[in-house]
Nucleic acid binder design. Sequence first.
DNA 1: TTGGAAAGTCAACAAGACTGACATAAAATC
DNA 2: GATTTTATGTCAGTCTTGTTGACTTTCCAA
Lengths: 165, 165
Amino acid sequence: MADHQTGESLLFLTDEQVRKGIEAMFFAYRGFTADPDRILEGMDYGRAHHRAVHFIGRSPGTTVNNLLSILGVTKQSLNRVLRSLMEDGLVEARVGRVDRRERHLHLTEKGAGLERQLSEAQRARMRSAYRAAGPGAVAGFRQVLEAMMDPEAKRHYGRLKEGGS
Amino acid sequence: MADHQTGESLLFLTDEQVRKGIEAMFFAYRGFTADPDRILEGMDYGRAHHRAVHFIGRSPGTTVNNLLSILGVTKQSLNRVLRSLMEDGLVEARVGRVDRRERHLHLTEKGAGLERQLSEAQRARMRSAYRAAGPGAVAGFRQVLEAMMDPEAKRHYGRLKEGGS
DNA sequence: TTGGAAAGTCAACAAGACTGACATAAAATC
DNA sequence: GATTTTATGTCAGTCTTGTTGACTTTCCAA
């Protein structure tokens, strides 16, 4: 099962194999979002809030515009999310010092608490998947995912901490 | 950069590495759905129609109930999608011969045409990601994704053509 | 023959995306 | 100094896709 994939320049990939990859993405993504979704249901928040909190936590001080282009949504859509997070005191928007039009976004203590809770659940699943698949698989996993991204997404991805790859 | 991942039973995984995996999933999934989404916009269909058409094409004659549990949505939600696909003559529901309560779903010629169009776009991206990442990466990719699935999703995944893994 | 499973339908609703139009403040440019 | 562009926010309306809940029809099986 491994030896007809050993050609180097011309990978021998049947449509069936590629289709299985597609289905793996579909089913895995459901698992990937399941734990945070469970935590968020009951709170007034959803997946959109999770994503905002995640990327603000990851790049403290990011501007609204930057977050917009990371998330790939419209400002109206993001604004609704940010407004509720700010009203509830999870996110803080500080006026830029050099350019005062900009709002720099930060998590409050409370926001960081929620981020941690969501992140821990998601990381636990990712970590256990990594463990189950083994060390070699992890590198391959990220290589394929990276090659699947649109160029702009890849740019954003590359800029987040833990540099290269 | 590769040598602190070489431990075998205890993978040395920093939170940063795991976080990057999470972000890779997020950005890659956007790319993964981008091409079919582009094709579908303008038609009256969306991602939900794509998924239905995909899995009906993959398992011709599947019942509504089975499709329901593969997709993980409610029957009301699926019904709306199936109804429009049937009205437009893309999907056909045949009454079961052994159990006449069941509807067995099939793509018509027209439905298979759309399926092919969507699938080709998505497979092109997947195939090119596989090529870029190389033969070793492909196996790892699927191993990690499979380990990330919920048990029931994994069951469905395993039952689709090209057997084992 | 009756209970229950499979399927379908109607209605109401919510999250999260979208577009379009408009407002404000501040920076940048002419 | 006046004008334009940029960053952000907001109101209003729409679309897709999901949800519950209630109800009907069909029909297999005990």
